[in-house]
Every structure is written in structure tokens, then in C-alpha cells.
Simulated scan of single mutants.
Amino acid sequence: MAETKIHPSAIVEDGAKLADGVTVGPFCVVGSDVTLAEGVTLASHVVVTGRTTVGARTRIFPFASIGHQPQDLKYKGEPSTLDIGADCMIREGVTLNPGTEGGGMKTTIGNGCAFLANSHVGHDCHVGNNVIFSNNVMLAGHCDVGDFAILGGGAAVIQFARVGAHSFLGGMSGLEQDLIPYGMALGNRAYLSGLNIVGLQRRGFSRNEIHDLRRAYRSLFAAEGTLLERVADVAEEFKDHTIVMEIVAFIRAGGKRSMCTPKNGGEA
């Protein structure tokens, strides 16, 4: 079993649960309700507090603030939680907030995520696996982010928005609507600029799968009919195409925000 190492200058409060192989570096603070799984590393000057669980082998870098009271003026001290998955990288100055009574009482972060310097996850958010937040990304409260989504530097997402799996939000973009799975949005305010083709190619999607997505995309965002009518047509035509049906399910599920759409037509 790997040795747990706690620097003499660190403060680990009574009640905190540290598994084998945890490293708590200089001037870190670990709260009494915190659980750190095997191999977690707190580099230095890290604060992890609240009812926070950090998954195995996750690394947290200096001046990150993890699990402090959420930035919600309605928060009254309810015992909400923050659950961070395994193998995440949480860089300098990152802030991750727990949930609130008004949002289900928990914030969740999946496995293998990367949060680069000064990025923020607000209260009651749910972030999937293998998500990348570049520097200074701002995710407001109550947002959902799907697996493998990438948010570029300085991007901002409004509260209650959904960011679909395998999507890409460009740097400095302001997203006020839901971004479909496999989509790419750019601009302030963000518009749907096509499909995340580069991301799909990097993750090994076949040419046929990408071709099907392009056809479906053009149909979904064509000029004729309403979006619901076009969704029904695409659902019928592509009912045996799993990745296209992910987009259909995302649109049909709906949310509190409207759908991010292209500026000019449906070109992918």
C-alpha cells in the first residue's frame, strides 16, 4: 500500500477520510467532511472543504478552491455535496461549488476531466466524463455538460443550459442556449456553426458516421418546417443510426433554454 503523505504545514481536520497514497502538500486545508480516494494529490495551497468527495488519482493544483459554499444568495447552509470523479486534473485557481436545495443538492464531475487555470463550475451542475474546460471557462449554476465536450478559453455558459456530448464551444463564446451533441458553437452570443468534425475524427468516428451526422444536421436545421417537424423527419430517416438519435433525444428532452441554431442555414 502506498504511503499517505501530509506536509507539516497542511491542516487536515478531524473526520476527513484520506485513503492510501494520498499526498497533501504544503499549506493545504482539508475539511472534516472531505473524502480523498486513493492516490489523490493536493499540490500546495489547495482548500478542499464541505461534503466533498474526490476520486482516485485526481490531481489538484495550487490555489484551487473546492467545495466551498456555492455562489447562490438563496443558499442557507443546507448539507449539499460535491462529487468529483477519478483521474481528473484541476489546475491553479479552479473553483468547484457544491449543490443547493433548489437544484437537487449536488454537483457532480465525471472521470478523466481537465479543468484548466481559473475555470469555474457553479452549483448544481453535472459534468460528464473526459470533459475539458480551458482557462477561465465559466459554467453557471444548474448546467449539464455531456461526455467529451470541450469548452474553449474564456467561454461562458448561462445557468440551466445544456452542452451536449462531443460538442465544442469556442473560446470567448457566450452560450445562452442548449448546444446539441456533436455540435460546435462560436461567438458572443454563440451560434451553431456546424459539427465538431475535428473532434469526431480525433475520437475515431468513421467517415460513414460523420457523413450521416452531416446529412442529419442539414435536415434538422433546414429552412422548411418547424424544428419539431424536422426532428420527427430525422428520427424516422435515421432511426437505426445511434449517434444521430442522440441528437434527436437531446432536442426532444428539452430544457429551460431554447436550442442554439445556425446563423445562416444548416451547413455542417
Results as ranks from 00 to 15, higher is better:
residue 60 I to P: 09
residue 203 R to W: 02
residue 107 T to A: 04
residue 96 L to I: 10
residue 236 E to F: 00
residue 113 C to A: 09
residue 126 H to C: 11
residue 240 D to G: 06
residue 170 G to N: 06
residue 221 F to P: 01
residue 73 L to M: 07
residue 113 C to K: 10
residue 104 G to M: 04
residue 144 D to S: 14
residue 149 A to G: 08
residue 100 T to M: 08
residue 128 G to A: 05
residue 49 T to W: 06
residue 233 D to A: 12
residue 215 R to E: 15
residue 134 S to C: 09
residue 51 R to V: 00
residue 174 G to W: 02
residue 120 H to A: 06
residue 124 D to L: 04
residue 58 T to F: 00
residue 192 L to I: 07
residue 141 G to V: 01
residue 227 L to W: 11
residue 126 H to M: 12
residue 163 V to H: 03
residue 95 T to K: 01
residue 245 M to S: 15
residue 172 M to S: 11
residue 259 M to A: 02
residue 249 A to Y: 01
residue 261 T to K: 14
residue 6 I to A: 04
residue 211 H to E: 07
residue 153 G to E: 05
residue 209 E to H: 10
residue 178 D to R: 05
residue 100 T to G: 06
residue 206 S to K: 03
residue 258 S to W: 07
residue 130 N to I: 04
residue 117 A to Q: 11
residue 66 I to K: 11
residue 220 L to P: 03
residue 133 F to Q: 10
residue 268 A to G: 00
residue 23 T to N: 11
residue 196 N to Q: 08
residue 90 I to A: 07
residue 81 T to E: 08
residue 152 G to C: 08
residue 130 N to M: 08
residue 86 A to F: 05
residue 64 A to S: 14
residue 3 E to Q: 14
residue 1 M to N: 12
residue 139 L to K: 06
residue 183 G to Q: 12
residue 183 G to S: 00
residue 177 Q to M: 08
residue 68 H to T: 03
residue 60 I to W: 10
residue 235 A to R: 15
residue 196 N to I: 05
residue 205 F to L: 14
residue 176 E to Y: 04
residue 77 G to Y: 01
